[in-house]
Design a protein around this nucleic acid. Structure first.
Length: 196
DNA sequence: ATACCGATTAACT
DNA sequence: GTTAATCGGTATA
């Protein structure tokens, strides 16, 4: 039940951090009420050299400014004008690394998440649906994961590299050869089933 | 000012 | 397999 420390986020290897985020608990707390889920799928975005990243080539805009801040903050942006996508900013200030959280397994606050999703049966298996379940919006971009309403905790579930399936990232065809890089990580399906 | 596109999703055929 | 939804970023003028 402990919040992940600042040192975890500020390391330089975004691939390693992405893998280690698998199995951790993403929590939001609004008005004293918590909802949470276990992270089961992520993607790493490797800074200015990564054509799939919003910071590709050193691009710096109002939207992605928080990526250039220190690790341990939330980067939330609007995708396709509809979906709020949540990222964990990593590395130290000045290096725009980030990890996109693509899927969670609901843990706490099922009823509230169900209501937010607006369906009798709801899923949190996509980057846009998990933010809806946890009520994360673009206005929360820049939120501090150590002191703010969005946080990540380690509840002691052990995940080894053998339990992680690696593949190319989704929806980044425009990135040329960078689209093929093995930067997508998900918990092995049998483990996902056992934790659900 | 105008046009095009995207780190997606749910509801179709 | 296809498509509408919907808006900020980016490029072009």
């Amino acid at each position: 039940m402990r919040k992940i420390s600042i040192d975890f986020y500020q390391r330089s290897d975004v691939i390693k951090i992405a893998k280690e985020l698998i199995g951790k608990i993403l929590i939001t707390k609004w008005n004293g009420i918590e909802t949470s889920g276990r992270i089961v799928e992520v993607e790493a975005y490797n800074g200015i050299v990564d054509k799939a990243s919003h910071a590709s080539g050193g691009r710096r805009t109002n939207r992605n400014e928080v990526m250039y801040g220190r690790g341990g903050m939330a980067y939330v942006y609007l995708c396709y004008g509809i979906h709020h996508l949540f990222n964990v900013v990593t590395h130290e200030e000045g290096t725009p690394h980030a990890v996109l959280v693509r899927a969670i397994i609901p843990v706490e606050g099922m009823e509230l998440m169900r209501r937010r999703r607006g369906a009798a049966q709801f899923t949190t298996g996509g980057p846009g649906t998990l933010t809806e379940a946890l009520a994360i919006r673009t206005t929360h971009s820049g939120s501090d994961l150590l002191s703010g309403p969005i946080g990540i905790e380690d509840h002691g579930v052990k995940v080894t590299s053998r339990n992680i399936v690696i593949g190319p990232r989704i929806g980044v065809q425009y990135a040329g050869k960078d689209a093929l890089r093995p930067y997508r990580f998900r918990l092995a399906p049998d483990l996902v089933a056992s934790l659900r």
